[in-house]
């Protein structure tokens, strides 16, 4: 799938009477497990040290989240 991302966007209605400066694009997270079903066999693994740091043994489930004050370093940013 090209252009696949774990961050989706939508554009809410902006009223001319909205008091706050409008946020035109809203984003939400759609992590990889939503698309997985039963975990398939023989998925690629992190080595043990990387796995302890990532929080998962499986590369397919790795989806780090970075806040607006951080520089995004994740594969899904």
């Amino acid at each position: 799938m090209k252009n696949f991302t774990h961050k989706k966007t939508y554009h809410p209605y902006i009223s001319p009477l909205d008091p706050c400066p409008p946020i035109r694009t809203k984003t939400y997270s759609t992590p990889p497990h939503l698309y997985m079903g039963f975990q398939p066999e023989n998925l690629e693994q992190f080595n043990p040290r990387e796995a302890l740091q990532a929080g998962t043994l499986w590369k397919a489930f790795y989806d780090p989240y970075y806040g607006p004050k951080e520089k995004g370093r994740g594969p899904n940013e």
Binding site: P32, A54, G55, T56, F61, Y65, Y66, K69
Partner: peptide
């Protein structure tokens, strides 16, 4: 994480968020 500007804390929070994904 959005509210936090502490990179060390966010590192731990990212780990915890990843565990939620695996548990789900």
């Amino acid at each position: 994480i959005d509210m936090s500007d502490d990179p060390d804390l966010n590192d731990g929070l990212r780990f915890l968020r990843e565990r939620e994904i695996v548990h789900s």
